[in-house]
Amino acid sequence: MNASDQDSMKKSGPGPLDGNSVTNFLQLGVEQKNRPVDRLIERLQQADGETWLHSALDNSPGSWFLSLEGSPSAAELEEFKQQAKVTFAKADDADARLAGLLRYLFVIAAGLNYLGALLSSQPAPEISATLLDLAVALPAPWNDFIAEAAMSST
């Protein structure tokens, strides 16, 4: 750590804060509870999580999900998104619903990474936080892909 780094660590606080800054910091303290992505992360963390992940991506409507090779077009992403939403909403079992959510979030990440567009009506900070949390639970190479998307809009 260089001197500048040590200065950063030793700073006694974030400096003068206006109302907006305090609000932003307070927001960081709010517990995100019962988000669908939390159940997805729990599924990924189970003993067979990686096997389940491969299966969920392998059974996706496009080979891109598993390989991340090539860039789906905007039209393809829109189609993938709609399919994922239907799966998430209507699948009979929990694993299938979570697979739908996984694909949905992959499509959102692709929109950010390939098109620079947020293909979701959710607020960008919320999507970013969701993708960030998902990225930490994913193995390579998907973790970097999702993390890159999470960081592209914030």
Binding site: L132, A135, V136, L138, A140, N143, D144, F145, I146, A147, E148, A150, M151, S152, T154
Partner: peptide, 18 residues
């Protein structure tokens, strides 16, 4: 922005996420 932090800290996006 996080994207610039990744470059500044010379880490991968997933490392930055952690």
């Amino acid at each position: 922005p996080y994207k610039l932090c990744v470059e500044e800290f010379d880490v991968s996006p997933s490392q930055a996420a952690v």
